[in-house]
């Protein structure tokens, strides 16, 4: 058990920061219900454990840092369509509406030109966008990003950062990251995990003094580079 006695009530956007191995990803997985935990996690006043698997899928989507895929042939549009699974009738194919939603989502993210490509042939940045498209097609209120820029170069990081910020109007974003530039740019309240405890910062997190205290590294004005 990495985190102890954490009770969490998620109602707004949230960025989760912390050192390596501090339990950020575990916390994210606990929010999705993928790992067992003690304590209580509430999403918009509902207890996570009370939701059925499909209801949960309609509430939360989780975007991993890296796409690991065995099916080498699955194309982008087919992959994004998987996001519609919780809405699909059992045993039946995806509906016309599901397919329309996929089209819309691809257009919204400006990746319609990729739809015929196989997912395994995409670059890391394109794969991250495809994962975001799948999460959006899932139409969940909450999207969890787990280290979205960990495998990206600065220019792709910028694209992803802008997308994530843009999404704050549509959904509730929970962002887990090491990337302080990204965190600062996305500008949500921060949950900082340190030594098995969580600290919550509504606003003042990105001030040099706070950062210095938490990371023990000298910061001089964290520059916002993604605009």
């Amino acid at each position: 058990m990495i985190l102890q006695n954490v009770s969490l009530e998620v109602q707004n956007h949230l960025t989760i920061l912390g050192a390596n191995g501090s339990g950020k990803s575990t916390l994210a997985k606990a929010i999705c219900g993928l790992v067992p935990y003690e304590g209580e996690i509430k999403l918009n006043a509902r207890n996570v454990e009370e939701l059925s698997l499909k209801e949960k899928a309609k509430t939360i989507s989780y975007i991993p840092a890296k796409l690991e895929i065995y099916d080498n042939f699955i194309r982008v549009e087919e992959f994004v369509l998987l996001g519609r699974f919780p809405y699909k009738k059992s045993f039946f194919d995806y509906s016309k509406e599901d397919k329309n939603i996929v089209e819309e989502t691809l257009e919204f993210l400006k990746i319609s030109h990729l739809k015929e490509r196989s997912v395994s042939s995409l670059s890391s940045g394109e794969q991250q966008l495809t994962l975001i498209a799948q999460a959006l097609a899932q139409r969940s209120r909450i999207i969890i990003f787990d280290e979205p820029t960990a495998n990206l170069d600065p220019s792709n990081s910028k694209t992803i950062a802008q997308r994530i910020k843009g999404l704050k109007e549509r959904c509730q974003i929970i962002l887990i990251t090491h990337d302080l530039h990204l965190a600062c740019y996305v500008d949500s309240p921060v949950l900082f995990i340190k030594e098995k405890r969580v600290h919550y910062y509504e606003r003042e997190f990105f001030e040099d003094a706070t950062l210095h205290e938490l990371y023990g590294v000298e910061f001089s004005s964290l520059a916002v580079k993604y605009d």
Partner: peptide, 19 residues
């Protein structure tokens, strides 16, 4: 369809509502 999700990863399938 469940198999297609499971072929991505077990976690991803679970997160899409597959038991």
């Amino acid at each position: 369809f469940e198999l297609q999700l499971l072929s991505v990863s077990e976690d991803q399938a679970t997160l899409k509502g597959v038991n």
